[in-house]
Amino acid sequence: MARVSQEHLDARRRQILDGAARCFARNGFHATSMQDVLKEVDLSAGAVYRYFSGKDELIAAIVKEVLGEIRAAFEDVNRQSPPPPPDVLIGEVLGRTLGIWSSLNDDGDPVFPHLIIQVWAETVRNEELAAILTDVYTTLRRAWVQAVEAYQDAGMMPSDIPADHVARTMIAAVQGFVTQQALFGAAPVEVLQDGLRGLMGMRTAQPGA
């Protein structure tokens, strides 16, 4: 009997994860059955259960992969020295993040925004996944605090504002825009970048103006 290559095994696992991600993004974790996943990936139950013992293990694998990709996106762009302005930095992170699972739903929207909403909800009920989310968020805050401190050292940002407050706001901007994508449909990253530039360019109103 011919031995199955590791490349084939990895490709099959990827096929299952991608199909499950589409199902979960479309119907949610708990409204999706393993039968739905089997139909989506067009594989037998035996083929799928070789890789995942059931839906809970599939959910855990999806959540860990999503959060891992987000962590990598934030950390990679933060390695630039000096970091680009906040609107450019956030745009780079968001562009990469939205590209995760670039396959489309039936309505043509990217999978990731719908999927991340499910991930956030799942971490509320699952302590193991909540711990992973907390670890990723802590890592992101630390990385983006470093970026803000670099802005402050370069004189690009006021130094009297706590760097952690700015970092949390930058992360919130990304989270909020992804949520808008999930709830109200796709929009180009430039929308957020333009909005940030507008806010960053505000000036104090002059008396009588």
Rank of each mutant, 00 (worst) to 15 (best):
F29W: 02
E40M: 12
H30A: 13
A47F: 00
E75P: 07
S81Q: 12
A73M: 05
R50D: 00
I70R: 08
V63P: 02
T32N: 09
L58T: 11
Q80N: 07
L89I: 02
N78G: 15
D36V: 06
A61D: 14
S44P: 01
G54Q: 03
F24K: 01
R71N: 06
R79Y: 10
R79I: 07
D56R: 14
K55W: 02
R71C: 00
S44M: 04
Y51T: 05
S44W: 05
L38F: 08
E65V: 10
E69T: 00
D42N: 11
F24R: 00
R79E: 15
Q80T: 14
G19M: 02
S44V: 01
G19E: 02
F29S: 01
V77F: 14
A73L: 06
V63Q: 04
Q35D: 14
R50H: 10
L58R: 05
E75C: 11
I70W: 04
M34P: 10
A73K: 01
A72L: 09
L89S: 09
Y49H: 09
Y49E: 03
A25L: 07
D87T: 00
R96L: 14
A25D: 04
Q35E: 13
V77S: 14
F29R: 01
N27L: 10
I16Y: 00
D76I: 12
A73V: 04
L89E: 04
P86Q: 03
A20D: 03
G91Y: 04
G68R: 08
H30G: 11
V48H: 05
R22D: 00
Q35G: 13
E92K: 12
A61F: 12
I90E: 04
V48G: 06
G28T: 06
D76C: 13
P82V: 09
V63D: 03
E40Q: 14
H30Q: 14
A31G: 12
C23R: 10
F29E: 02
F24P: 01
H30N: 15
S33M: 08
D56E: 15
E65S: 11
A60F: 08
P85T: 00
G46F: 04
K64F: 12
L89Q: 08
M34R: 13
G19S: 05
P84C: 07
V77W: 11
F74H: 14
V37I: 15
G28N: 09
P84F: 09
P83I: 02
V77Q: 13
I70L: 05
D36Y: 10
H30E: 15
V37L: 08
F52Q: 04
Y49A: 00
E75K: 12
L94E: 04
A25C: 11
T32P: 07
C23W: 06
L67H: 10
A21V: 13
L17S: 03
E65H: 13
L94S: 05
R50W: 06
D18Q: 08
R26H: 14
L89F: 11
I62V: 15
Y49K: 03
I90C: 09
E69P: 00
A47Y: 01
Q80G: 01
V66I: 14
I59L: 07
A31K: 12
Q80Y: 15
Y51R: 00
L58S: 06
E65W: 11
R22G: 09
P83Q: 03
G68P: 08
Y49T: 03
P85Q: 03
L89K: 10
